[in-house]
Measured scan of single mutants.
Amino acid sequence: RRKSKRKPPPKKKMTGTLETQFTCPFCNHEKSCDVKMDRARNTGVISCTVCLEEFQTPITYLSEPVDVYSDWIDACE
């Protein structure tokens, strides 16, 4: 008699959501930077609500707010 092989359980999909508020690289306030994605103009704007620092970068249809933040961090270095 042959043993029946069980199929492995399906893999769980990533359910965690990406951050939309970030720590400002200038004033170091946590969750003080908000990202606005202007898909019509293909630009992402991130601004700090505390020190009013602002950064704008081009985006694509695949871009997420975390991509705008990482572009800002890269531009600071």
Rank of each mutant, 00 (worst) to 15 (best):
N28V: 03
T20M: 14
V66M: 13
A75V: 12
A40T: 02
K13D: 07
S4F: 09
D74W: 07
W72H: 02
K13L: 06
R2A: 07
F26C: 12
P58G: 11
E30I: 15
H29P: 02
C24R: 01
P9M: 06
V50N: 13
T57I: 06
T23F: 07
T15G: 11
K5R: 09
C27M: 00
C27K: 00
M14S: 10
R2F: 03
K31Q: 11
K7W: 01
D67R: 03
P8I: 12
G44E: 01
V35K: 01
C48I: 00
F55I: 15
A40R: 15
W72Q: 02
R1M: 03
W72E: 01
V68G: 01
D74A: 14
D71H: 14
E53V: 06
D74K: 10
V35N: 02
G44D: 02
R41G: 12
F55K: 02
R41I: 15
C48R: 00
C76E: 08
D71N: 06
D71V: 14
V68Q: 04
V45W: 09
K31P: 06
V35R: 01
T60N: 13
L52E: 10
Q21M: 13
L52Y: 14
I73A: 12
A40Q: 07
T43N: 14
P65M: 10
P65T: 09
T57W: 05
N28P: 04
D34Q: 08
K5M: 14
T15L: 10
D34T: 09
E30S: 07
S70H: 11
R2V: 12
C24I: 00
P58M: 07
K7T: 15
I73T: 13
V35M: 06
G44Q: 02
R1V: 10
I73H: 08
R1T: 13
D74L: 11
P58V: 11
E54K: 12
C76S: 08
A75H: 11
P25Y: 15
F22R: 03
K31A: 06
S47K: 09
P8H: 15
F22Q: 03
C51Y: 00
C51H: 00
V50T: 11
T49C: 10
P8D: 15
P9Y: 14
K3N: 15
E19S: 12
A75L: 10
V50Y: 12
T57H: 15
D67W: 00
K36W: 05
E19Q: 12
R41S: 10
F55S: 03
K7E: 14
K3M: 05
T43K: 15
C51K: 00
S47N: 07
E64N: 11
T57L: 02
V66I: 04
V66N: 14
G16L: 09
C27I: 00
M14I: 15
Y61V: 12
T23G: 11
P8R: 05
A40W: 04
D67C: 03
K31F: 04
L62F: 04
C48H: 00
D71I: 08
T57S: 15
V45P: 01
S70K: 15
K5F: 05
S4R: 02
T17L: 06
T23N: 15
V45M: 15
M37Q: 01
V35P: 04
Q56F: 04
S4D: 06
T60P: 03
G44M: 02
P10V: 12
C51W: 00
C51P: 00
T57R: 11
S47F: 09
K7F: 03
C33L: 08
A75M: 13
K31Y: 04
K3D: 08
T57M: 10
N42T: 04
S47G: 11
M37W: 02
I46E: 04
V68N: 00
Q56E: 14
S70I: 03
L52T: 15
C24L: 01
W72C: 06
T43R: 07
R6N: 15
P65V: 09
C24V: 01
D71F: 07
T43C: 02
T20K: 06
V66H: 09
K12S: 12
T20I: 08
E53A: 08
T57C: 04
S47A: 13
D67N: 12
K13V: 11
P8M: 09
T23Y: 07
C27H: 00
C48F: 00
R2D: 10
T60H: 09
K7V: 10
P10R: 04
N42Q: 10
K13Q: 08
E19W: 03
F22I: 02
C76N: 06
G16N: 11
S63A: 11
C76I: 12
S70R: 11
C76R: 14
R6H: 09
L52R: 12
E53M: 05
